[in-house]
């Protein structure tokens, strides 16, 4: 038996839409983690009070409509090149807070060179990397992060290392570069992991505010639509298949900047 409890006073709002997010509904599919990541970016921007000096660079993928949701200046970059655009902006406005928002196809396939070299230059920007192991926007083709055995529309028999190669571990790779200041991998599958993700994204922005150099957060995300799963199944897959191959954690965290 249940009982309706009417609160004596209006409930105090303890959670809600970050101020710098527009009051519109996300276009993402149900269960998609792109929405969570947008929200966490919004929270970080609110937390540090940097909305009026933040510039976002949207990669091409399901996150391309960043500007519909996050109320900051935004540039839409060509597919894969967001880090180069961010470099150009950063050199013109070194005092602004610049972040890119990129998928795995965008960042780790077509834009790999720009990503690596921007990290290597220690460009003082933040990269938000949404790894969902597929090309979401174009309909679920194989990505550089597609797991071995994972079926996609262009790996219909499952990805094989002979021929397709291995899924790329971006955090591990970037952490080896002298230029990176903060490198972390997080996930959105459980409330606990969401908390850690939020913390890492905030930390990445903080590193940039403190002029520490290149900060990078990889977010393991669900794409229920292209995985052919319900949201619940998709989060289970993140835990069962993605996290074992893409371990979570902070791979690098500088305490002093290069120039210090």
């Amino acid at each position: 038996m249940s009982e309706i409890i009417t609160p004596a006073t209006e409930p105090k709002k303890i959670m809600g839409r970050p101020r710098c997010l527009n009051d519109v509904t996300f276009h993402f599919c149900p269960g998609c983690n792109h929405g969570n990541v947008h929200k966490m970016i919004g929270e970080a921007i609110d937390e540090y009070g940097i909305q009026d000096r933040t510039i976002g660079v949207a990669g091409v993928g399901c996150g391309v409509f960043l500007y519909n949701y996050v109320d900051v200046d935004v540039l839409e970059a060509p597919h894969g090149r967001a880090c180069a655009e961010a470099t150009g902006i950063n050199r013109v406005h070194p005092d602004k807070i610049i972040f890119t928002y990129q998928g795995d196809g965008d960042l780790a396939a077509i834009g790999l060179a720009e990503t690596v070299h921007t990290a290597n230059r220690g460009e003082n920007i933040t990269v938000i990397f949404v790894n969902n192991t597929v090309y979401g926007m174009t309909g679920g083709q194989m990505a550089p992060t597609t797991l071995l055995g994972q079926k996609s529309t262009t790996s219909p028999y499952g990805r094989e290392f002979m021929g397709d190669g291995y899924p790329i571990k971006m955090c591990e790779m970037l952490a080896t570069l002298e230029g990176t200041a903060f490198v972390a991998r997080v996930a959105c599958d459980t409330p606990k992991n969401l908390m850690a993700a939020k913390k890492a994204i905030k930390k990445a922005f903080k590193m940039q505010i403190d002029q520490m150099g290149f900060s990078f957060v990889e977010i393991l995300s669900a794409c229920p639509t292209n995985w052919g799963m319900t949201p619940k199944q998709a989060y289970k897959r993140v835990a069962a298949e993605m996290i074992p191959y893409f371990p979570l954690g902070v791979f690098k965290e500088r305490t002093t900047a290069d120039y210090m």
Partner: peptide, 10 residues
């Protein structure tokens, strides 16, 4: 490719 995209950003 990077050059022209840095140009685009700037």
């Amino acid at each position: 490719i990077a050059s022209i995209n840095m140009v685009l950003g700037a």
